[in-house]
Every structure is written in structure tokens, then in C-alpha cells.
Design a protein around this nucleic acid. Structure first.
Lengths: 143, 143
DNA sequence: CACTCCTAGTTCGTAATACATACAGTTGGG
DNA sequence: CCCAACTGTATGTATTACGAACTAGGAGTG
């Protein structure tokens, strides 16, 4: 068959293009790892946001850049799997804190570690200096 | 635990985390630009894949990492908007070449330029040397 | 040619995603 | 107390994504 994609990766003169491809790679890794744990990428991302501790719906919508109605549904589905719980906020009775269950903690950690490990693997070709430089440069763009 | 001495505003000690955040940023930019042009991110991504020229369904599924049934639907919806056409391959009568229409070319270019421009804007804080270094480092990881 | 296997895409059914809109309960300021 | 603002849900719609089953066109072998 026709093989057109030979000269494809080597000519990387463009920073935005490199950024887009990096995003594509990360999305792919996230999708693979999620699937390994029987989660959708969105569900896995949600779980990862909760590892550090319970988060309210409003904060979650900001973190994941979703409308609140979308977040409601997402939390619904993850809650239905017993990975997450809605706990009433004691101070504000309108609000919930979304909290990982015991199973949820386990799965969230495994997913998070899976993503990190795979990304580390992809970055393994870098020297220590290059790693530090890349981290710093990404940090600068992300500010 | 590894702790680099690089201190930016945020505590960014971790390369994988930086990569994930970069991906999140790019996804966001893509979503915003797409929305400005009345496209979904997936539709915009498809259009961008076609800027260089017509592509068959099989190649598209590989490029976008989708199942062929998903790609069928995606092309359907974009074709229904008149942005893309299925053209029979002359050599293989099972195959199609997916091709941008005139409107499609216009919109694809605008979307592509929009994404590039916004990412350039985000990277504007980098010096020329830093830009080159970041591009090269991303390229190395992407291999 | 007949036969078989493979490939290119579609169709269909299902679940998840994402949004806008409309809604209910709560909070806090005047 | 009243009401605007806020927190989150419910509903309806379109899109996304997948797998399985399918059609039809190549491609190789006897």
C-alpha cells in the first residue's frame, strides 16, 4: 500500500504544532490508561482531581472547564459505580463535596500512576538536563 | 522524592504533570477556537487533517485514533454541513478520499490559524532561544 | 473461473459527553 | 422580610465513540 507518512515526524520547525502533537499524545495516553481501568478519560480525569481531597461541584467545573450540568452527569455516572460520593457541605447546605470512596481512591491512584508512568516512559529518551529544561519551559508557557 | 530547584509561581516539579497541563491547555484552546467557528473540536481537528490534501478514511482513523465507525459518523456530520466531500478513489472502488469543499478550505484555514495564533500568544513569554529549545525537546519526546 | 480471505466503509444499537435552558433550594444583603 | 445571586439538579438535544454485523470490492490460489 501507499506509504506517505515517512517524512512526517522529522520536520518539526513549528512550536505550536509540537504543542498540538504533545497534547494529542497525552490525550492518547490518558485514553489508554483509562480504558485499562474501565473508565472513560473524563471519568479518570475527574477521579484524579479528587485525589488531593474532596472538591465542590463549582470548583470541579472550573478545574475541568465544564458546564455545571455536564459535571452533574459526570459525577452521577461515577457515583453510580461507587467510586465517588456526594457529601453535603456542612457550612453551605446547597453545596456538595465530591469525595472518593475507598474503591475510588484505589482506582484513582492506579490511573494517576499509570498516566505518569507512561508519560515518563515517553520522556525516557531525555537526559536529566533536558528533562529539567523541558519542565521549566512548559511551566513558563503554562503561567 | 525528586525535587528540582526550579521555582515558578506554581509548584511544578513534575514533567508528566507539566505535560498533562500543557495538553489541557491545548485542548482548551482548540475547543475555544472551534466554538468560534461553530465547529466541535473533533470536527475542527478533522478539517485540519485535510488542509494538506484529501485523505482516505483508513488513514484518517489512524491519524485521529478513532474506530472506523466513529470516523464514518464524524465525516457524515461535517459533510452534511457542506464542508467536506466523499470522493470515490479511482484506483480502489471501495475507498473514498475525504476532501474539503471550498467553504471547508476557508473554515479549516481559519480554524488552524486561530489555534496557531492563540498558542503563539501563550508562548510569547519565551525568548527565541527558549522557543527553539522547547520545540526541539517536544520533538524529541514525540519521536 | 470459483473460492476464499482480506480490506474499506457503512449501519445500527448503546453509552457517554457536553451544552443550554429551566428549575428548586439556600444564602446573604438591603 | 424580600429578592438577587448562587449551588446544584433535571430535561432535551446533538455529538462523540465504540463494537458487532454487514456490504462490496480487491487479491491470491486452486
Amino acid at each position: 500500500m501507499l506509504r506517505t507518512s515517512v517524512n512526517y515526524n522529522r520536520t518539526m520547525t513549528d512550536l505550536p504544532t509540537a504543542m498540538v502533537r504533545m497534547a494529542h499524545l497525552v490525550n492518547h495516553v490518558f485514553a489508554e490508561v483509562s480504558r485499562d481501568h474501565d473508565l472513560t478519560p473524563q471519568q479518570a480525569q475527574l477521579m484524579c482531581q479528587l485525589i488531593a481531597g474532596p472538591v465542590g461541584m463549582g470548583e470541579l467545573t472550573r478545574l475541568m472547564r465544564l458546564e455545571k450540568s455536564s459535571m452533574s452527569g459526570l459525577v452521577d455516572r461515577v457515583e453510580r459505580r461507587g467510586l465517588v460520593e456526594r457529601v453535603r457541605d456542612t457550612c453551605d447546605r446547597r453545596a456538595y463535596r465530591i469525595e472518593l470512596t475507598e474503591d475510588g481512591v484505589r482506582l484513582a491512584n492506579k490511573s494517576h500512576e499509570g498516566v505518569i508512568a507512561e508519560l515518563e516512559r515517553r520522556a525516557a529518551s531525555l537526559t536529566d538536563e533536558e528533562r529539567d529544561a523541558l519542565t521549566a519551559l512548559l511551566g513558563k508557557v503554562l503561567d
